[in-house]
């Protein structure tokens, strides 16, 4: 379990950033994942007082603060209207309401977990991660980056005329997913696959004419691994099914 001596609420992002440059300090989001580590920290750095909780809808984009909880994402009317309920679908299987009232979007995206429903969803949207020093980075790039000591401030989702569908497959309710899939369809098609079990990835291309062929080829284009929840071969089959299922809802 995580142990620490101080719980600091910085008054500015600059102060939080300075504190985060020390390896013995750690940013805390919802503490869902962080607490499970065996790390000894001097201080945890809490962004709660920096106004980073909330979803702002503008004409051309959504700006979602790092401290927004997954429950807020699930219940937010505007964002769920825009994603056709995909936001809710992506998080509603994560443990339970009480857990989603704790854990944050910032911790979920910064963590780039190999099982992440959340990362998969945002990869299929036109999303950008705003880092305090690193600036605004397309999420597909961020998903591949190494961990560093920067602070995730917001996620920005540019609005477009798209339809989105999110699906996932679990062996058991509330367990980690065996596979996750998010597809958005606009002037082109974006398919994100996660829980491979590796960081989610996305492919983008022209809208296909042959859906069956697209599902087979797209499922094949990702690499998969095996773990206790399923083998690589099984995951590829599930990916094909989820892509096909999603396409049938979109087209």
């Amino acid at each position: 379990m995580l142990r620490f001596k101080n719980h600091i609420f910085p008054g500015s992002l600059e102060e939080a950033y300075e504190l985060n440059q020390k390896r013995s300090n750690k940013i805390v989001g919802g503490n869902g994942w962080l607490r499970l580590g065996s790390k000894q920290c001097v201080s945890i750095i809490d962004l709660s007082n920096l106004g980073l909780d909330g979803i702002e809808e503008k004409d051309d984009e959504f700006i979602i603060g790092a401290m927004t909880t997954l429950r807020e994402l699930e219940l937010n009317k505007g964002f769920n209207e825009y994603t056709g309920g995909a936001a809710k679908e992506a998080v509603r299987h994560i443990v339970g309401v009480q857990f989603r009232n704790c854990v944050t979007l910032g911790g979920s995206i910064y963590g780039r977990f190999g099982f992440s429903d959340v990362l998969t969803l945002f990869l299929a949207l036109d999303s950008y991660v705003e880092m305090y020093k690193g600036g605004v980075i397309p999420i597909s790039e961020f998903a591949k980056m190494k961990y560093d000591n920067d602070i995730l401030v917001n996620i920005r989702v540019k609005k477009a005329d798209i339809k989105t569908v999110y699906t996932s497959f679990r062996n058991q309710s509330t367990d980690f997913p065996v596979l996750t899939c998010a597809i958005s369809l606009g002037s082109n098609i974006k398919t994100a696959i996660g829980a491979r079990p590796a960081r989610a990835d996305v492919v983008e291309g022209e809208i296909p004419k042959d859906m069956e062929k697209y599902a087979i080829e797209t499922a094949k284009s990702f690499t998969y691994g095996s773990n206790i929840r399923g083998s690589a071969e099984y995951r590829e089959q599930i990916a094909y099914v989820l892509i096909k299922r999603s396409l049938s809802k979109l087209i």
């Binding site: 719980h7 809490d46 709660s48 009480q98 009232n101």
Partner: peptide, 16 residues
């Protein structure tokens, strides 16, 4: 309940 929202007290750090 933390401010009326159900939360996991094993997960919430005390100073929150």
């Amino acid at each position: 309940w933390l401010e009326d929202k159900p939360t996991l007290s094993c997960t919430v750090p005390l100073m929150r």
